[in-house]
Design a protein around this nucleic acid. Structure first.
Length: 558
RNA sequence: GAGCGCGUAGCUCAGCCGGUAGAGCAAUUGACUUUUAAUCAAUAGGUCCUGGGUUCGAGUCCCAGCGCGCUCACCA
């Protein structure tokens, strides 16, 4: 595969551009492995941005593996800063009052409000891992609490104590006057209250590795910096961790960008080599505001996975990482269809274009084959999400079987067994219909004339009970329409030359029975939906049940 | 104010190493034996933000300007 590697060295797809920086780094240092890191602050449930960071870092990692033909081992460490103090009680958890007394304690020392895990921190860590596992990421999880208490950070902590002045010299100029007066890069955990203390150090002993400070009750305390007694302040924590673990690559959001120099300087000050960075743009909600955990705006990972595949979300993360993009429900269908298009094009592309195709990066160079359905003449088509959303809207049904029925009109052999991807997509389309389309429906009552016509239609259809012949049923629909709503303009005619049917008739059917202004060819709809079921639908349209049911549905949603 | 990014068809965006502008949706027309979802075929459409520069040649590279977006206290 020298062709692939050579092209990868030329490719301007961003994961390759980032990975090339790492190749140069390896050539420079002679190192024999590469460590990727992503950070996670578990003060709340996992954020879609956290997921994006892991997805994108994985893409760079895979690009690196292609470039180096897998000769340099790589690891991805997802580091959870779960020793951070709980600064406020999150809004979206149960038992909030009970949590209040644990404010400022490390998250791994706060009881789990969900009552399932050892601590709130453990709970949030587990949630993060669940999401990452859903996507099949290859990663190692790391807990700050474990690292601090097990002694894995002891050496670097002693080092920071020794180099205390150097670290403070980097930090102090970046702070406001007020903060400067009390700042410390060490945050001791109070031996009395268990809280993370933001207090000035009275003394730092670089030789013995201890710090001296006043505890919350005013008593002076001297403790070793090691063993989990003390954690590092945010910026020193970043730099020191990179140095301690030998991190080679870490990306972060643009809000961190101004701090890059500070993190890197600290890393060097304590003897490390600063990692390579990539700065990505933040996501925006529907109103153009930045999505953040604390605001709780925008959509969640669960939201996305309710309506679309993990792959479509990965595509969103791949595209334009340096642009502030809107991440909201209405971007979902497009991502799904773009993903399908890219997947379909991939096999026929020359290598160079494959390397720029998002599915290469989403699937670590091994995208699956696209699923298509074929008609009787063997013309293959990709079923798009847009098409399914239309189908589910016109079929007016949350029953997947009705959708399969529509699809089998085109391709008689298609099924969930031979098209698992399509089956999943139908599930997503149904959910999207239920939550975004159905609420927009408006049912109206039939007029007197329309009621008479509908009653006749029910009678006419009843004679064809059990029929699945769309054309036969369509003819019946037309016969009734001709009697009640003839088109007198002469514009439309039946094949035998009799007057056609006014559009009013069809509008009536859609508005009264389906709650929409437009709809499917009605005979075909009846064939799939069922004659008896359609008669029942007409009955409910006439007696007002459809309107009432829709009202109830809307009321239930709130 | 500083940093980063963006400005291409009505909308959303592709345009790789510089070589006569592309897709999807929307629109219009037609096919599917009566207009009505999907599908299929076709048509229409753009001063590539502006002005300079480099070049035989610039949407693409360089400079300047205009417009828009995001980030930049504390906390992480």
């Amino acid at each position: 595969m020298p062709d692939l590697v050579a092209s990868a060295h030329q490719s301007n797809a961003w994961p390759f551009e980032e990975a090339r920086k790492l190749v140069e780094r390896v050539n420079r240092t002679g190192q024999t492995s590469v460590l990727f890191e992503t950070g996670y602050g578990p003060s709340g449930l996992p954020h879609i941005g956290t997921f994006g960071e892991v997805a994108r870092t994985t893409m760079v990692r895979n690009a690196f593996r292609v470039l180096t033909e897998d000769k340099i081992p790589t690891r991805l460490l997802c580091f959870s800063d779960d020793m951070d103090g709980m600064r406020k009680v999150p809004d979206n958890v149960p038992n909030r009052e009970a949590l209040a007394e644990y404010l400022h304690r490390p998250l791994t020392r706060v009881p789990d409000p969900f009552g399932e895990f050892e601590s709130f921190g453990h709970h949030n860590n587990a949630m993060l891992r669940r999401f990452l596992d859903t996507f099949g990421f290859d990663y190692e999880f790391a807990s700050a609490t474990d690292y601090y208490t097990s002694g894995r950070f002891d050496e670097i902590l002693r080092h920071v104590a020794e180099r205390y002045q150097a670290v403070m010299d980097i930090m102090l100029p970046t702070l406001g006057e007020e903060r400067r007066a009390t700042y410390s890069c060490f945050l001791p955990i109070s031996p009395k209250s268990g809280r993370v203390l933001y207090v000035p150090m009275k003394h730092v002993d670089g030789i013995n590795g201890t710090v001296t400070f006043d505890d919350e009750d005013g008593s002076e305390v001297t403790m070793p910096v090691t063993g989990g007694n003390v954690k590092l302040q945010w910026k020193p924590d970043f730099g020191a961790r990179w140095a301690a673990l030998g991190v080679d690559f870490e990306m972060y959001g643009k809000d961190h960008q101004p701090n890059t120099m500070v993190y890197d300087s600290i890393c060097r000050a304590v003897g490390g080599l600063a990692p390579e960075h990539f700065v990505y743009e933040l996501f925006l909600d529907d109103k153009g505001q930045k999505i953040s955990k604390s605001k709780g705006n925008g959509i969640t990972i669960d939201d996305w996975l309710t309506y679309a595949s993990p792959e479509s979300l990965a595509l969103f993360m791949y595209s334009k990482p340096r642009e502030a993009k809107k991440l909201y429900f209405d971007v979902i269908p497009r991502q799904v269809d773009d993903y399908l298009t890219f997947l379909e094009k991939f096999p026929g592309q020359p290598i160079k274009e494959q390397l720029g195709n998002p599915v290469f990066h989403i699937h670590a160079g091994q995208p699956p084959a696209a699923e298509t359905i074929s008609d009787a003449a063997n013309n293959a088509t990709t079923v798009t999400f847009a098409m399914l959303l239309n189908l589910v809207a016109v079929a007016n049904s949350e029953d997947p079987q009705v959708l399969w029925g529509f699809l089998r009109r085109y391709s008689s052999t298609v099924s969930a067994e031979n098209h698992p991807g399509l089956a999943r997509m139908i599930g997503y389309a149904v959910a999207y219909f239920r939550d975004f389309v159905r609420p927009t429906k408006v049912y109206r009552a039939a007029t007197e004339a329309e009621s008479a016509a509908l009653a006749d239609l029910a009678k006419a259809l009843a004679e064809h009970t059990g029929s699945t012949d769309g054309n036969l049923l369509q003819a019946a629909v037309y016969e009734v329409g001709r009697a009640h709503f003839p088109d007198l303009s002469g514009k439309s005619k039946s094949p035998d030359g009799r007057p056609g049917v006014s559009q009013t008739w069809f509008s009536t059917l859609y508005q009264v029975l389906l709650g929409a202004d437009r709809g499917p060819r009605f005979g075909s709809f009846v064939a799939l939906y069922g004659v008896d079921e359609t008669c029942e639908l007409i009955r409910k349209g006439l007696d007002g049940s459809l309107m009432a049911e829709h009202q109830q549905f809307l009321a239930r949603r709130g």
